[in-house]
């Protein structure tokens, strides 16, 4: 059966032994600005680790995640995900945007929002089937949202919305998860559920790169910390700086 994938790219196998993310000398500039948002950043993240991406507002955290997600084209440098160029295999990378980037007033249910995580596997014309729905329900249950399946997305609390976005990233069954501020303005229960989920992902060999302002439990929740300052990498290593 033919599948018409969105970017016409097939599902490629990862290169054996390749790191989850390899970035080499990447510079990103926004139009109309002189200061680059990312300035010659290089880093290498092995598979199966949880990485916290920290830094002040405007330090380049979101820009880095967006560049890895393929949303922004770097001016210079090279990036690869499991040895493949950016955009070569969309299902392998899941991106969780900041909550403000989603139109929460849109009339869809939580189940429908999470189901969108399966679209990358189906492409044009094909619709998600019963197995996709079963996966969605299982993941929503895992994230404590089973009772809210039929609720309109705008009726959720901030923490529940963040968990719904995480659920969408999980049903995508990606290997590299890029999470932009998943802990901002969430309640303690949501934070605990998100931390537990990241730990489970690590045990499954998946990699998570998480932009965060919450520095209080870095040692418990992450394996590695990357700090950005004004678009440059100023620390990369263990969580106990």
């Amino acid at each position: 059966m033919f599948r018409f994938l969105y970017s016409q790219r097939r599902h490629h196998a990862a290169l054996v032994g390749a790191p989850a993310l390899h970035i080499e000398d990447v510079t990103v500039s926004y139009p109309g600005t002189t200061q680059p948002a990312l300035d010659a950043v290089s880093l290498c993240i092995p598979a199966g680790v949880r990485v916290a991406l920290v830094g002040a507002n405007g330090s380049g955290k979101s820009t880095l995640l967006k560049a890895v997600a393929g949303l922004i084209q770097p001016k210079t440098g090279r990036m690869s995900i499991y040895g493949l160029p950016i955009g070569a295999c969309h299902h392998r990378v899941a991106y969780l945007p900041q909550r403000g980037e989603v139109d929460w007033r849109f009339p869809i249910t939580v189940e429908r929002l999470v189901l969108a995580g399966r679209y990358v596997h189906h492409g044009w014309l094909r619709r998600p089937g019963p197995s996709d729905r079963a996966l969605v329900i299982a993941v929503l249950d895992q994230l404590g949202l089973a009772d809210l399946v039929r609720r309109q997305i705008g009726a959720l609390s901030g923490g529940q919305q963040q968990r719904a976005l995480l659920a969408r990233a999980l049903v995508q069954e990606a290997d590299l998860l890029l999470l932009d501020e998943p802990l901002s303005a969430v309640d303690a229960a949501s934070r605990q559920i998100i931390a537990t989920t990241l730990d489970q992902l690590r045990r499954q060999g998946k990699t998570a790169l998480v932009a965060t302002h919450h520095l209080d439990r870095l040692a418990d929740e992450f394996d590695r910390v990357i700090e950005l300052h004004d678009g440059t990498l100023c620390y990369s290593g263990g969580q106990n700086r």
Binding site: A69, G70, Y95, V102, D103, I108, A116, V120, R168
Partner: peptide
């Protein structure tokens, strides 16, 4: 009808749509 899921997703979350290759 045929593009329902794509039009719906790109309406409420265009950034995620871009990430999965849907312009």
């Amino acid at each position: 009808f045929l593009l329902h899921k794509e039009l719906e997703l790109s309406s409420y979350d265009p950034i995620y749509a871009e990430v999965i290759g849907l312009k």
